[in-house]
């Protein structure tokens, strides 16, 4: 599965980086970086949690 960020919605609050630090990271300018787009099965619980708690509903997973 691939993670997709809707950059029009994301406001860089970094909540996803707390839930899935291996996948999302904030830089010094408070911009979100996706460290890896392809999500392994083991990372799914963390990434699912990030999708749930993103206040801007900016995250989604695609095959």
């Amino acid at each position: 599965m691939k993670i997709d960020v809707d950059w029009d919605l994301c406001d860089g609050n970094g909540v996803c980086a707390i839930e899935a630090p291996g996948v999302f990271e904030m830089d010094d300018d408070d911009e979100l970086h996706v460290l890896k787009e392809d999500i392994e099965e083991e990372e799914r619980p963390q990434v699912d949690a990030a999708i749930r708690v993103c206040p801007k509903r900016a995250l989604s997973l695609h095959p």
Binding site: G14, M26, D27, D28, D30
Partner: peptide, 10 residues
């Protein structure tokens, strides 16, 4: 300062 906030939340 969202970046540091994420660190402190962790």
């Amino acid at each position: 300062n969202a970046r540091l906030v994420t660190r402190y939340r962790r």
